[in-house]
Design a protein around this nucleic acid. Sequence first.
RNA 1: GCUGGAAUAGCUCAGCUGGUAGAGCAACUGAUUCGUAAUCAGUAGGUCGGAGGUUCGAGUCCUCUUUUCAGCACCA
Length: 638
Amino acid sequence: MNIEIRFPDGNTKEFPQNVTPLEIAESISSGLARQVITAKVNGAVVDCNFPIRQDAAIELIKFDSDLGKEVYWHSTAHLMAQAVQALFPTVKVTIGPAIENGFYYDFDTDVPFTDTDLEKIEAKMKELAKENLEFTRKELSRNEAMQLFADMGETYKVEILESIPEDDVISIYTQGDFVDLCRGPHIIHTGKIKAIKLLKTSGAYWRGDEKNKMLQRIYGISFPDKKLLRKYLHDLEEAKKRDHRRIGKELDLFSISDAIGAGLVLWHPNGAMMRSIIEQFWKEQHYAYGYKLVNTPHIGKAHLWETSGHLGFYNESMYNPIIVDEQEYYLKPMNCPFHIAIYQSHKRSYRELPIKYAEMGTVYRYEKSGALHGLMRVRGFTQDDAHIICMPEQLDDEVSATLDFSLAMLRAFGFEHFQIYLSTMPEKAVGTPEDWDKASAALRKALEKAEIDYEIDEGGGAFYGPKIDIKIKDALNRSWQCSTIQFDFNLPTRFGMEYIGADNEPHQPYMIHRALLGSLERFFGTLIEYHAGNFPLWLCPVQVKILPISEKFEAYGKTVIAQLKKAGIRAEMDISNEKIGYKIREAEMQKIPFMFIVGQQEAESNQVSVRRHTKGTLGAFSVDHMIDEILSEIAAKK
RNA sequence: GCUGGAAUAGCUCAGCUGGUAGAGCAACUGAUUCGUAAUCAGUAGGUCGGAGGUUCGAGUCCUCUUUUCAGCACCA
């Protein structure tokens, strides 16, 4: 009996019943058969040797798709577990999923894996891969499975089994002598895994809970082609060159000194210049968007933080208090109570709302030592903070305007790719579920209106309200929170904020916290990695470097600098006793956008010989012409 | 905070199983005055992150500690 198989392009073809995706691939071409990893049959992902019983729509999946990679890497994780158990029989297996780039497997072992162990495991994996061990699926009853893994001493698998819902199908996959509880699907056999690299080991808590035992995790990656692995490793090396900590040092932008304290940033002149340009732009934009700038102190009395609830909720991440005149003062972890104090400095009319107070507020939070990371996670940082205090009926418009402002701000710095999250009510929260729904709806409406993709982070909101977060990835694909727009149910109540409405009665306003860049430190870090230090001209600390051919032309160089500076262009001259090639190399490595080479010819014709960073020589131009060019590029913020 | 690495000159790094610290670049000095990614020569620079300990002797071994890297957990 034949069945009809329908392909994604709409074509159909007859096959005998129980035909497998692999056989279908073979019927098309041997190349496809070699490449096929898994298949979707009527939308369900299955193994390649899955017998298709009736008419179905099929989609053959190769490594070049996300799904193909996932199955391929997940299978490699199984292979790794097999190798680990072959080498270390007492090690218990837990879970081993595919991740965005590769896979990991968590093992329970008393002796952590060393780098040498990793090499051995990798070698064993390659050996097992060559054996072309078939992945075979078997479905069995809960009790059978329990018995099987209990006999093997795989207690974690038993624990997982216990948490699988009643009516779920339980399946195991076997390759060689290795058995693993798994939903599947898998690749056809281990021989499909051609290139393997185990990348790193680390500790990881069982089920992601720090109260549980710490397991040993091994991360790895694999490819069906050695060339792909080489490319991956090369790209990884390239990405490391974009590391903001490395570029920060190379371009003399910032440092973090052991002598001063972990997580406390020193902005060097180059970095501080960029920061000042960012701040200036930020201020202009905020005035344009109807914000009022405020400034507030770095410390405040304990009572303030008791009222705000920070001492209750975040006590462990606040710095210890300073005692002044027998009063406790805390370094501020947030700016909100101060902004509220400004709001409450006199009675407010509904006619004043919305009020938007903005401040580059430097805050201090005691981050756990293991969390610190360059500029991305620090203990003292400046938030580009603002609080919007509005009437309930203004909420939708304000959230929407803030989201637009946020995206515009990030785009102004060249960012195009964001991950956007809407975080909803967590377990520990203030406010009623109805309030949460209402506020979440306002946030959602703004996202829909802006027509941008976002994900829901279920239960990821702050205790005081739902929020929209915009994250940016660093060079190594790690996400860092940038903008955040947070609704607050907590503070207006706690501080008893009010305004007098048109009805001449007091009402409680709504409050939104928002930061667009997030923290200046972190934003700077992502900016460095995003541009790999090749900043847009308007942000460059030094826009033009004058390179005299020899000391004899320094006098002419000075006249050029004077003209540039008069036009507001940041220019410096290299007066080192070096040859022009050396000066160019220095300027190139400093990633300075414009190099003006000046010698005999230029001095005589009142020109400069222009070289552009990474682009090379552009030719000789008059200084006036170059000033026009540079100013228009700066104005365009490109 | 947890697991596992690491810390040697301003920077990047070498220093075998314990025998008293080295290179390149940078800096400084001198020569050179040069045409698009490194001119030559010389000089100086380190209580080997810190504190204990073992040892005749510690950069090297042990303990504690600080910082840092990767990941986990956390992230108002």
